[in-house]
Design a protein around this nucleic acid. Structure first.
Lengths: 299, 299
DNA sequence: TTGAAAGCGCTAACAG
DNA sequence: CTGTTAGCGCTTTCAA
């Protein structure tokens, strides 16, 4: 019998995972819903999650929500229909994503990543935005900035709150009203245009994401405004390209591997029946100081 | 009865797609195996494929092969085990990926994207590398380059062949021996180090991918070699960040939406029973001339 | 037109 | 210890 088994399996028999899934009520599939796969930060995160999940014999079903709450809800519904064993969600909106998140939770474990929906009890893994903002702000004040402005996409609510709380704690900093748009290079460029319609440039532009900072740099360079001598710029996330642009961007770098590892650990625990209250895991970002915020030597 | 159906369904009934899949022998899942999700070109491609597939009621299972043939084979096996209805494959090696590709073909439609495996009959959608190389080479010769070198990752075989064929057709160009490494920023930097161990810089460094070009730029800038006045640099793919680096990189831009659209069209045809011989769809890239290859005004 | 039954491939449970 | 059976939820087929 054992011989038959061995022979048959070596002759290419593979058990049917669909039938298995029907019987066992477990597909071995995990969904991930992200606002934009082409944002290098999310792409890096997805790559890291994929790698972690491989060791668990779980496969990733990818769904891009295009930063739309409706699309997000739709994609979650579809993933749930496919009986994913669990779901990773990078919420699109800290408030409007709540119903979709709650719905997802009804059918299995959900781990929120990077962004947190307000007022919903749920597992979460992400970076500590307060620490990150504090590091960025104490750095820019150190290199001589006084007037600062925050520029971010609409979802970065926790990050925005962190900015607004921390900026008050740092002596000598004055914040102009925050500029909110989308997480895109284009918005970074547009933000510069908006800024220049005001009286004068701040000393530092604090961006909620590296891709926004990239656009800000381009907007400034198009107008022949030098970074860092005329204005300093910082990003957030630590994407590869923040290091390879000109000037390289100072950023709060998210430890993507650690986040993915922690997220999968949480998932594994839930899948093996852990019913303890939601965990919120906040991982410290790493401040990478680069030329975009360098102090001016001779004043 | 109809009333009951309506009522039941509105009360949250959803049919079980796993049971449906078992019965119908169709899961509604499509696999994609890519060498590196965090390469922005692949990320953009995956995003575009996801969008196209959404309209077909198909979901994407993502598998990163980490540019390893063994891992690629393993991931394909797993996707096949999950009964994906079809597979997109961005092969890791134009030769060594052949067994895995053949294996995948035995269990359903496969569309190769971006890279082609030699000697296997298979659907394929990608860019016309010959056209792209020709455009790049005639451009660099026009801006005064004479000695050129090709720097690429190991897989870019078609692209490399295109370079080596086309470079001979352009009057006035002389090619140094090609440098082959990996598709990464790091390799771009390393390639510059290797180049500088030789006697003298070429006039133009033709990179097989934008991310390599990014590394080349950094390697050159670290050594205070100016682009484009001392050496010209070109990329391939047209990733967003090729436009937002310094200097912006001249590149053969791949029309990602068109490629994804074509790939899904092919898939749809195969899924609805089309058994015509393999289609090879080569789409023309668009040359984007940027500062990294600008002619020097005053010679 | 409506309803019952069979079976997709698997595994847990139970009988021999 | 081995072998049979039932049933996961669906859809197709065939009968009433």
């Amino acid at each position: 019998v054992a011989a038959v088994n061995t022979a048959v399996e070596q002759l290419g028999y593979r058990r049917n995972r669909v039938a298995q899934a029907l019987r066992a009520r477990s597909t071995g599939l995990v969904g991930i819903v992200a606002p934009q796969v082409s944002n290098p930060f999310f792409a890096a995160l997805i790559e890291a999650l994929d790698r972690e999940l491989r060791d668990e014999d779980l496969e990733l079903i990818l769904a891009d929500s295009r930063a739309s709450v409706e699309e997000e809800a739709r994609r979650i519904q579809i993933l749930v229909d496919h009986n994913v064993d669990a779901l990773f969600l990078i919420p699109t909106d800290h408030h409007l994503s709540a119903p979709a998140l709650r719905f997802a939770q009804r059918s299995g474990p959900v781990v929120q990543i990077d962004q947190q929906v307000d007022g919903v009890e749920s597992d979460y893994v992400g970076v500590d935005n307060t620490l990150g903002m504090r590091a960025i702000l104490s750095h820019v004040v150190e290199v001589g900035a006084r007037r600062v402005i925050f520029v971010s996409g609409s979802t970065g609510s926790r990050r925005r709150e962190a900015f607004e709380t921390e900026v008050r704690k740092v002596k000598g900093l004055v914040a102009s009203p925050t500029l909110i748009g989308t997480f895109s290079v284009d918005f970074g460029q547009e933000a510069v245009a908006q800024l220049l319609r005001r009286r004068r440039l701040p000393d530092a532009i604090i961006c909620g994401a590296d891709i926004i900072a990239l656009g800000v740099l381009r907007g400034l360079s198009d107008r022949h405004i030098d970074v860092p001598s005329q204005v300093k710029v910082t990003g957030f996330d630590g994407i590869l390209f923040a290091e390879f642009c000109e000037p390289p961007i100072t950023t709060a770098s998210q430890p993507v591997e650690a986040i993915a590892g922690e997220a999968v650990d949480l998932l594994r625990a839930r899948l093996s029946g852990d019913v303890s209250p939601p965990h919120r895991h906040e991982i410290a970002p790493v401040l990478k100081v680069r030329r975009s915020s360098r102090a001016i030597e001779a004043a």
